[in-house]
Design a protein around this nucleic acid. Structure first.
Lengths: 244, 244
DNA sequence: GTGTGCAGATTGGTTGGACCATTGGACCAC
DNA sequence: GTGGTCCAATGGTCCAACCAATCTGCACAC
């Protein structure tokens, strides 16, 4: 007997209905990311549900990163929504142990290399100029402070992801970036952490400017390799816990 | 002046605190996925917050797929939780439009190549035997049914991700796999979809067995390239909508 | 003019209490 | 056993109020 022919029935789903209505609203008003949605009170009134229900629905969206709430200000759209959206709530266990960081870095290596290659394929002249601008800013910050500045460095990489034409790169790497940021707060003991990666930023840029996907891919791989080395050195120094 | 030395202060974060406490509870009690957590009322009382606050926290976890709520029964743990978990709420806009699928495929290309390379570096003799077994099953299924079978094909790839030693590969690609599955349900019009990718499964295996990371990476890139070609041909045939 | 500071309105965050709908177990009649 | 009934427990929804952060605009000092 085929038990699949009797799927569980669906009864009430108030807050799901709220989200569905909200998707309709966003589309009807062509709301763009960054714009404000109606206040919770208004939504509750219009949809004829309680404010609590609206809040539960919005909380779910907030957890998925679709929306950002600012007390006293409003609720803002953070990403495009569409009726048949696919949510991938990945939850990566791990924090400051060496193994987790290494694994995260392996993912980043894969994506960084691919993004650089795609960027080299697709960059317009304007795109290349923009990347060079970010590179200059980063290099100047490096010289001024004699050390990697995660802020400007990050801006440079983000520019590459954007030019790759695929927003997923930035989404995924940005999420992992937070993990590293958390880690860098606890200084690593390796005083010149990141120094070694510095020259590869320019070589990546040069390969992109030369429209050389394979070259860009290789330079990106080298850059991540230096970060991995730094990480290993730091781990050895600190005797960082590594998971069994 | 270094603005990084002035991180935003943390004021109230009631529901985050609830989740933190809950993580502690789960660890203290060694709760496994499937087990029941305390009721909302008990949590509210113990943590000295209102039940609504508890519910907002749980709603967020529910949205992330960490817990499941059953009215009249209780709230159940659905996945392992750890104190400093990294949430990666990817939202892929749109299901069936060409652009989204291509973007997903670009991510998969990056990860597939890296996983194959790592796999070639790290595979033990037993690992290689296991991969070959999966390959044989897949090839036999291919010959029997005269076409790619997504089930056995998927098993083969999963084996590679596992041997790579990094669970993130499987997690991320598995999530995206769902998107493709949905898509393949609507047959593409390209009758021999996936046929072209078939031979590369064996070449990937051979490079892994030869402990040749760079070779494995290249073969994986070729495999994804054939899928991309199939997708493009299908899109041209169906006049699939492509986003601007 | 400029900008500084205060007051009020707006908005999300939290609370406590109430009731509904579903679930699952205990109990009972057959 | 089998099926039905009842009941306590639990998540779902609602309401009304207040708290806290934010924004807006006006008055005032310079």
């Amino acid at each position: 007997m085929d038990q699949n022919s009797l799927p569980p029935i669906q009864t009430t789903a108030r807050d799901d209905a709220v989200l569905k209505a909200l998707v309709g609203f966003v589309r009807a008003e062509s709301l763009q990311p960054g714009e404000r949605l109606p206040t919770e009170r208004i939504l509750a009134e219009r949809l004829k549900v309680s404010r609590n229900t609206v809040r539960e629905a919005l909380t779910r969206w907030e957890g998925l990163g679709l929306v950002e709430r600012r007390q006293g200000s409003g609720t803002y759209l953070k990403a495009a929504v569409s009726p048949d959206m696919l949510h991938l709530p990945l939850t990566l266990a791990g924090g400051n142990d060496f193994t987790s960081l290494m694994q995260t870095l392996e993912i980043r290596r894969a994506l960084e290399a691919e993004a650089a290659a795609l960027c080299a394929e697709r960059a317009s002249a304007a795109d290349i100029a923009e990347i060079e601008r970010k590179l200059d800013i980063m290099e100047q910050a490096f010289r001024t402070r004699d050390g990697m500045s995660s802020e400007e460095d990050w801006e440079f990489h983000q520019a590459i992801y954007r030019v790759s034409g695929n927003p997923l790169f930035e989404q995924i790497i940005a999420a992992m970036h937070e993990l590293f940021h958390r880690f860098w707060e606890h200084p690593l003991g390796v005083r010149d952490f990141g120094h070694a990666s510095f020259p590869y930023h320019r070589t990546i840029y040069e390969r992109i400017a030369a429209r050389d996907p394979q070259g860009a891919r290789n330079e990106a791989l080298k850059l991540i390799a230096t970060v991995e080395d730094d990480l290993k050195r730091g781990a050895a120094k600190l005797k960082l816990p590594s998971r069994t």
